[in-house]
Design a protein around this nucleic acid. Sequence first.
DNA 1: TCCTACATTGGACTTTGTCTAAGTCAAGAT
DNA 2: ATCTTGACTTAGACAAAGTCCAATGTAGGA
Lengths: 137, 137
Amino acid sequence: MSDLLDRLRERGWRLTAQRRVVAEVLNGDHVHYTADEVHAHASARLPEIARATVYNTLSELVAIGEVIEVSTDGRAKRYDPNVRHSHQHLVCSRCGTIRDVHPQGDPLSALPEGERYGFTVSDATVTYRGVCPNCAS
Amino acid sequence: MSDLLDRLRERGWRLTAQRRVVAEVLNGDHVHYTADEVHAHASARLPEIARATVYNTLSELVAIGEVIEVSTDGRAKRYDPNVRHSHQHLVCSRCGTIRDVHPQGDPLSALPEGERYGFTVSDATVTYRGVCPNCAS
DNA sequence: TCCTACATTGGACTTTGTCTAAGTCAAGAT
DNA sequence: ATCTTGACTTAGACAAAGTCCAATGTAGGA
């Protein structure tokens, strides 16, 4: 957990209480929070943290690659601190919960040259959808 | 194009001028419009069509499987009438334009049973990201 | 033609996110 | 240890995308 704080300090970040709390929330329970959920959890520790600060900090974490933005449903984006191992997401179409999954092979290689239309393709994200055991009952 | 209208009639849809226009816009140029863009094009033909009606009609078309909702960037959803051939999307990370692509193999089969956590997985969508030739210059 | 259930309308409302001006503070310099 | 300064935070206004509702209109069957 303090790994992240160390990495941030190395990058010359000013370590404020607010940033510390946001980083701690993300690295705590390993779930995929929305920005508002991050804000709620952060407020529990630092009551007067502003919404804008949470958004700012999350954007910066995404920009430097410490966190991944996941938008599965066109609603609120979710933030995923699990950037060490490349992975994809499995989403429940009823309740929206997300699990990290590790499919076999590299999805990028499934796109033939003739289907790239001159794009420089750099990334492929896969979203699996289904119904979780909880919602199935 | 009137294929779609026929299919809708068969499903017992009341064929109103508004629904006709929305269906025609989607089946016209083969691009991926946002709801607002659909509304703009529909208004050109039927000036007083309401935003809510466009949203309603799009939701219904999605619900019956005639149109696919694509949310690539957490901003406005886009609507894709190309449901005949299964396909995936290639998105330019600069300008946001979308192309339909046809990768090889079935992405669903890349997810081993041990990575499904009891979910009933029914669908896999792949989003390729890159820079289009236009933005590369 | 008339009826009625279904569709449309417009506007208020919600959710998610961005922006800004003014105040605050972390960390290097003295 | 204190000062200074530019980066950070704040509150609230704003914006974009989408939903909801009560009142009104109308497609299609009787």
